[in-house]
Write a protein that binds this DNA or RNA. Structure first.
Lengths: 340, 340
DNA sequence: GTGAAAGCGCTAACAC
DNA sequence: GTGTTAGCGCTTTCAC
């Protein structure tokens, strides 16, 4: 069965007593082959355990069945589930998933382009807000690509992710409904589209409730735990506190929570905190974090499906697929303290 | 530069005014090519932006430069850093990393063998305690493979991981030095080699301190948060409590901590808890978890290096590389309460 | 409905 | 030191 060298199409042809062309046809265009022949071929395939050599096939076809997934940070808590979604969908269609890990190093961009070329990957999944290849690539013709999780900043690349605006909106709305009016937004950013959208949701919620926007309450952040902690410190230095911290993501919320606890405050008695993403760890924080869930596996699945669609150019499809975010209400939000 | 179709070796040859054989040689055995020729070739490569077509190369060579990483669960908090280590090392040697995700589904085993065959992957990294392929594969000849993170149960496959025995030993020793004598071990398992080893370390530590082994204190578990919670419940039902819970991994420790907190106990005032792995979340738990650190990136790096060594059969190398575990002392361990 | 044969891009004999 | 050529396994005309 599984000998030293895998069976080739010739082995199959010999056993089935047909030509290799017929074997190929029996596999890829069964309707063009006589039923009896097809049977013989299938038997021979079963006997030999034949699997087409993907290299030879790709070489001949001029395109491979591998998708390159480029991510700046494999360790991102959001990455793995999305990858799982991508991988499953790809596999189901006979594609393999190759991992490219840029480590947030712009330098490695070109290297990746080469890598991509050498493998003739059929397409690209970009798990990153910006194109990982040098500037020239932006204008240049890019292979079929789809962004996931975060819209791609510098290019008209189709994108699959959660509806950030709506998600953020749900979070502020909850806070407002609990009675908060001084709600901080932590994690503003000029370069990260997803964060900008979340801020839009925040502002929309405020506006809808007739709460005037207070710029003092909006602080920058890059989505790290540290950035949350830092932002919190700024508030305390200013001595101008909100009653709730709406954070751009769970990591930031974690940083804020840690800082708050370190100063002896209780969540949600003294301050309310919300996150975004619902990373696995959110439910285990103390208190467990109220946040917005990203349908990660679904995002991966849809993104890969979209890419695969593009490859078989069944129409260019949508340019942006926004999945519905769900608010996950846990224990980090409560009414504001009556008076401080 | 980057046209619609990538440059081939022929394009380079034409521009350099040499034959394609010379181009190939200039790339792979530069010393066999005249200096002046080499120069011309390199220039032509630069001009065309040529990158060898990996498919064609692999097809010709009969082996690919892709490594298949098989993992039961991409979401394992240990997975991403190990993957990063694997990926970097592979990339550095011109190999790509392909992800295979079994979802803990034994059924998918065969499917993976096929996948593997079709890609003619050069080797396998197994992030799983058991061979993912059907039983027959065990006896059958397997491609060059290396296990990471957890020794492979049913096959003499080289393994790179942390020294579980020593790691566990460090954890018990700490507990003992704090004065604990009734130390539970949570997460025993017959099928998971890593867990068995950790238990050995636990027993060795007890023995060294002259503490008799109490079987009642050893509970099974599969390393999930739930298993930790469950084990804890058993103790409370029996009303036969230890003063410290040494958990087989951080997830289990998390389950135990949650259970303890839910019952109103304080860690480490009432009970001490230790984990194993030092997953990212361990430092953010309340209290932060004392645990044993896995050098994950290093494990990935070494495993890939070992596999690559095997591929270029520079000797079969060691059969097991055990990295040194470090004890990370945080806040979940203290002396046992004087009397309960 | 089936077979013969060309050729995808590359490497490695083998000539010279 | 360099060129010619066979052939890796496959798909796809083009004949029949």
């Amino acid at each position: 069965m599984s000998n030293s060298t895998p069976a080739t199409i010739e082995d199959v042809a010999r056993i089935a007593e047909v030509s290799i062309a017929t074997v190929s046809r029996a596999i890829h265009m069964p309707e063009k082959v006589a039923k009896s022949t097809r049977l013989k071929v299938n038997q021979a395939i079963a006997i030999t355990g034949y699997t087409a050599n993907a290299m030879a096939r790709s070489l001949r076809l001029g395109r491979s069945n591998m998708i390159l997934v480029v991510a700046p940070d494999i360790g991102d808590p959001n990455f793995s589930s999305i990858l799982a979604g991508l991988e499953n969908e790809a596999r189901a269609h006979g594609y393999g998933v190759l991992i490219g890990h840029t480590q947030n190093d712009a330098q490695r961009g070109l290297e990746y382009l080469k890598f991509f070329n050498s493998y003739q990957a059929a397409g690209l999944i970009l798990f990153t807000g910006i194109l990982p290849f040098g500037h020239q690539a932006a204008t240049d013709s890019l292979p079929p690509s789809v962004g996931v999780f975060e819209p791609v900043f510098n290019g008209g690349i189709p994108y699959v992710g959660v509806d950030d605006v709506e998600g953020a909106r749900k979070a502020v709305d909850l806070l407002i409904s609990e009675g908060h009016r001084r709600i901080a937004f932590i994690g503003d950013s000029n370069t990260r589209l997803a964060y900008r959208r979340r801020r839009s949701g925040y502002e929309a919620g405020l506006a809808a409730a007739g709460i005037p926007l207070n710029r003092q309450l909006i602080l920058d952040g890059d989505g790290t735990v540290e950035s949350g902690r830092l932002a919190l410190e700024q508030f305390f230095m200013r001595d101008d506190l909100p009653t709730a911290f709406m954070c751009v993501n769970d990591q930031t919320a974690l940083g804020v929570s840690i800082g708050l606890k370190a100063r002896g405050y209780d969540i949600p008695d003294h301050f309310s905190v919300t996150g975004f993403d619902d990373v696995p760890q959110a439910s285990f924080m103390t208190p467990s974090l109220t946040t917005v869930r990203q349908p990660r596996t679904a995002i991966g699945k849809h993104a890969m499906a979209l890419l695969l669609d593009m490859l078989s150019d069944r129409a260019a499809s949508e340019t942006e697929i926004l999945l519905r975010p769900d608010l996950v209400v846990r224990n980090s939000v409560g009414p504001p303290p009556a008076r401080r």
